[in-house]
Amino acid sequence: MGSQKGYSPEARRRGGRMLQPRRAHRPRRLATSMQWSDEGIVLMVRRHGEADALLHALTFEHGRHAGLVRGGQGRSQRPLLQPGSVLELEWRARLAEHLGSYRIEPKRSLPAALLDDPLRLAALGAACALFEAALPERDPHPRLYAALRTWLDRLGGDAEWAADYVRLELLLLGELGFALDLAACALTGAREELAFVSPRSGRAVTAAAAAPYRDRLLPLPAFLVGGASDPGQIAQGLRLAGHFLARHILAPADRALPAARDRLAALLGAEDSR
């Protein structure tokens, strides 16, 4: 029966030629996961060799996903591979575990006005660098994707972009399992006059309950609990989110907040953002 090696069990039982080689009976899971199309936001691009680029994108269904863009350093594709650009991506690989390659189509370029605005440009760089550093690969976060996409769409013109950036960082914390509890006071259960956050538990505390420990607590900016934002509160928000991002997400991986995030904090007056 040596000649029947490689035949399917059914073919072996019948003693005839199998209809298909055994390797065609691989689980469907692998076949479907080796090619997909999705929408993605460019987080990071690195040169690969002389002509290609390594793209890390945050995709809607497939999370942060890397792939090789052939000709990515060429004249036609390089302008598309800017952090924050939205692309239609088609990813292919021989095996699901492989790096794979991307085919890219533009969906939404960066607004030109963004390049002239140092604060918004710094925020864009900070968001992309932070998502790249914090999110695990191939772990889908559709809610986070939608939030980043909305924030990017509004970044060119929305006056609330800085407050939304802080909310985006808090959403990132929440998606990774470290959501802050800003609904009620950790000590009294009160839902009004929340003014501080515990740097350990991430739970809100009212001003009155916090009085004995206030020098050890982080200020809670009012815009995170329904109030309006101002530059001082944005800086407080960045310090708050930065503390928990550094403590829970980046420090365990022996990483620090990205330099682009530090630069944004410095520009918005929140230098000590960890």
Binding site: P79, L80, Q82, P106, R108, S109, L110, P111, A112, A113, L115, D116
Partner: peptide, 11 residues
């Protein structure tokens, strides 16, 4: 031209 370049040119 891509929309970013067009926007920059118009600006």
């Amino acid at each position: 031209l891509d929309e970013g370049t067009l926007g920059a040119a118009l600006k």
